[in-house]
């Protein structure tokens, strides 16, 4: 599915709506360059899950956990990993197959670990400065 996101307001709406449908164990893999709004989208998903904590960039610590919402949120940024094996160090299976929702930024770095049934959102720049194009697929 292709979706045109005109600006940040649409990102927010999309994230909140997506969050309503999420259930424990769901994984959302985000793929897109710097500045395409991966963290912004994650913030909206968190808002939709009813998370009250502030969502900050997980770049430094790779994963951050948020427990205040309807379902726990595990927010990953795997940019700095050089290989998928390094995810083992983090004990990623407990997150991926746990009771929360995982949102993974730079998921293309660890594609072989993304389980079946995950939602992949590939984000590209649009024609206008604030516009983004979402390509949404499911891993089956």
């Amino acid at each position: 599915m292709r979706k045109v996101i005109h600006n940040e307001l649409y990102t927010k709406r999309f994230g909140i709506e997506l969050a309503q449908k999420l259930k424990p164990g769901d994984i959302i893999a985000l793929i897109g360059d710097l500045g395409t709004g991966k963290t912004t989208l994650t913030k909206s998903i968190a808002e939709g899950l009813g998370i009250t904590e502030m969502i900050t960039s997980p770049t430094f610590t790779i994963v951050r956990e948020y427990m205040s919402g309807r379902i726990p949120l595990y927010h990953f940024d795997v940019y700095r990993l050089s290989s998928a094996e390094e995810m083992n160090e983090l004990g990623y299976e407990e997150y991926f197959f746990g009771q929360g929702v995982c949102v993974i930024e730079w998921a293309d770095k660890i594609m072989e670990l993304i389980p079946q049934g995950s939602i992949i959102i590939r984000i590209e720049y649009g024609i206008n400065e604030e516009e983004r194009i979402y390509h949404i697929t499911n891993i089956t």
Partner: peptide, 11 residues
Amino acid sequence: AFGGVVPEIAS
């Protein structure tokens, strides 16, 4: 070489 801290290398 990686443009950032690579955790596994770090530890």
